[in-house]
């Protein structure tokens, strides 16, 4: 009869091993908890502030003592605080600050602009980066690797250096204060090209040769073979791009002036400038702005965790 672990090692040895395992687990959990805590505290504080009454914002408490309020006029419409008249009703609710933020500035326009910019640039980058990355990864052409390095080198030039020339260029093109000015430069990305190229290189070349013999041309190979295998990389790039464009501040600030074309990050500054610093509104607006990002993340998460399915290959 086979001996159990206990019989084989002796009871005390097994126990000691278990104890050691427990201690190392405990340490790991403590460190991870501290990390998670540090990450999540600012977010929870944001939520807390977004719920608070304006006069409680600086009270230093984590749990809001009372919810914020909002005025409703005689027709039952929400009105901004500075438009208060005699006889308006005051409603206290957890969502008061969110509604306030939404009506204080043309938030719907910001939201729409941000969605347009982030969606188009994300889709655009997925297309341009895929094509460029495939060319850098698989096509053979003179000077390919040199061009690739050069392209990568552009990653090292800070945006602040190119900002003014690019601004002048767009001014010359008559595109300042249009969404195109924000979208156009973001349609191409050295980072995205690099990311996808590295991934494409790792896909076995045999697959492409098999597809060649099956009768596919380059674009068909890209579409039918490479892209389906690159879902993870594409989801990563898509999420990064969307996030970056959604949050991008400096360039839109420089190039967008009118309310019609402002994006959310610029719109958020309204609460800090036009009305002093109304932190409860800033936080509420930030939380509203977070929604698409969370949706994108939840949608793409399954691709991140999906392992790369290259198991169709034999013993190598």
């Amino acid at each position: 009869m086979a001996k159990t672990k206990e019989q084989f090692y002796g009871q005390s040895l097994v126990e000691e091993r278990k104890r050691k395992e427990m201690i190392s687990n405990l340490i790991a959990y403590i460190i991870l908890s501290i990390g998670a805590f540090t990450m999540v505290i600012p977010f929870l504080w944001t939520i807390s502030t977004a719920l608070k009454d304006p006069s409680d914002v600086y009270d230093g408490r984590f749990i809001p003592q009372r919810f914020s309020y909002i005025y409703v006029d005689r027709d039952g419409k929400f009105v901004p605080s500075n438009a208060y008249r005699e006889g308006y009703k005051e409603i206290r609710a957890w969502w008061a600050n969110f509604v306030k933020a939404w009506i204080a500035v043309p938030f719907d326009k910001y939201y729409r602009n941000s969605l347009i910019v982030a969606t188009i640039t994300t889709l655009g980058q997925l297309v341009t980066c895929t094509l460029a990355a495939y060319a850098f990864a698989r096509l053979r052409w003179f000077g390919r690797d040199a061009v690739f390095l050069l392209y990568l080198g552009t990653l090292m030039v800070p945006f602040t250096v190119t900002m003014i020339p690019v601004y002048i260029l767009f001014k010359w093109l008559g595109l300042v204060n249009t969404l195109i000015a924000v979208i156009l430069p973001a349609l191409f990305s050295a980072f995205g090209t690099f990311l996808l190229r590295q991934f494409f290189v790792s896909i076995p070349y045999d697959l492409e040769e098999a597809a060649f013999i099956d009768g596919a041309n380059r674009l068909q190979i890209l579409w039918h073979v490479i892209l389906p295998l690159s879902k993870g990389a594409l989801a990563t790039l898509g999420t990064f791009t969307f996030l970056f464009q959604w949050n991008d501040f400096l360039w839109p600030l420089v190039v967008l002036n009118s309310e019609e074309v402002k994006t959310i990050p610029i719109g958020l500054t309204a609460f800090q400038s036009a009305y002093g610093s109304q932190w409860e509104l800033v936080m509420a607006a930030s939380l509203i702005a977070l929604i698409p990002v969370i949706i994108i993340y939840l949608f793409n998460q399954r691709f991140f965790t999906e392992s790369i399915m290259l198991t169709g290959f034999g013993g190598r």
Binding site: P204, D206, L207, E209, A210, A211, F212, I213, D214, G215, A216, N217, H224, V225, P228, L229, M309, L310, T311, G312, F313, G314, G315, R316
Partner: peptide, 20 residues
């Protein structure tokens, strides 16, 4: 003539099946 027009079929050492 490119491979696709040679009317040949090839079996690879590592099979090269499309994993997806």
């Amino acid at each position: 003539v490119p491979p696709k027009d040679r009317d040949i079929a090839m079996v690879f050492q590592n099979y090269a099946l499309y994993p997806h």
